[in-house]
Amino acid sequence: MEKICLTRPALARLMPMHLILAPNGEILQCGPTIAKLFTDPSLLGQSFFDCFDVSRPYNMMSVADILASNGTKLHLSMRNQHQTTLKAVGVALEGQDGLLLDMSFGISVVDAIGTYDLSIADFAATDLAVEMLYLIEAKSAAMNESHKLNARLQGAKIAAEEQAYTDTLTGLKNRRAMDHVLSRFLSTGESFGLMQVDLDYFKAVNDTLGHAAGDHVLLEVARILIDETRGEDLVARVGGDEFVLLFHRLTDLEKLNDIANRIIERMEVPIMFEGRQCRISTSIGTTISDFYAEPDMDKMLSDADLALYASKDKGRACNTVFSADLLRQAS
């Protein structure tokens, strides 16, 4: 079979987006779907190059150019307000001058179906466009469900982590959180101040006024510690009546001393619980990362602890900054 003949309706069914062009570029015939894209005015009788811009290959100015390109894929865009892009391929018609051009949307089909209100019947029965649209829609529905699941899981994960790093009674951070933040400071080499804060006479409150009073005092202490520190600082309850404060990028000893003194002063004010006074006091030991050539977590915590015991020795309700002297006295 060297040649085959098709009726116009048969061609329209196989290629609903075809055009037949005269040698001068005049559109002689068009498939039903491509006709739907140009309703006013109709494509028939117009020049192909007035209706379409051939963006690739370059320099396709005439039907002869397209014929000479020998079946190369053409990239077109429609000269209308939507500038819909199309792919096309042209072949010579045997026995007559002119060109048969078949077009398809490519990926622009997603926008085109909305713009031109196309239906399943507008595509050739063998065209995969509808399958692609189906797939896009099915996949985005499935992806949408996955996104919602991810958001819920992430929320649950954050809540679980938050819980794992929080002291349940006071809402302050716990020892695990302190370890985490402290090692982050050390690994990034950021400077910071560190305080060990110890409540004095807390056991007496617990013993004489009961655990409810003790819990109330701890909540009050937590509030004061949060009040007197900045949002970027860490306040952790690391033992029954022991707290560690980490001051991000704050190593000014004068400022740290001021903060310590304000905390101590406020802790001296008796805390009322069910009409009874709970009296506690506070001892603090301070150190800063600048003291060390290579700051180390255990070393800094134990130095601050040593300074804390110096404060207790001095009669409590005071802050001591760690120094080498303290080490000598201790040994």
């Binding site: 997603v110 179906i113 909305g114 209100d117 196309l118 239906s119 399943i120 509808v130 649209l133 896009i136 829609e137 099915a138 985005s140 529905a141 499935a142 992806m143 949408n144 469900e145």
Partner: peptide, 13 residues
């Protein structure tokens, strides 16, 4: 029914 999704980013449900 239109092939065009009313909201492609929110597939319906």
């Amino acid at each position: 029914f239109s092939l065009a999704s009313p909201d492609a980013s929110n597939g319906g449900r």
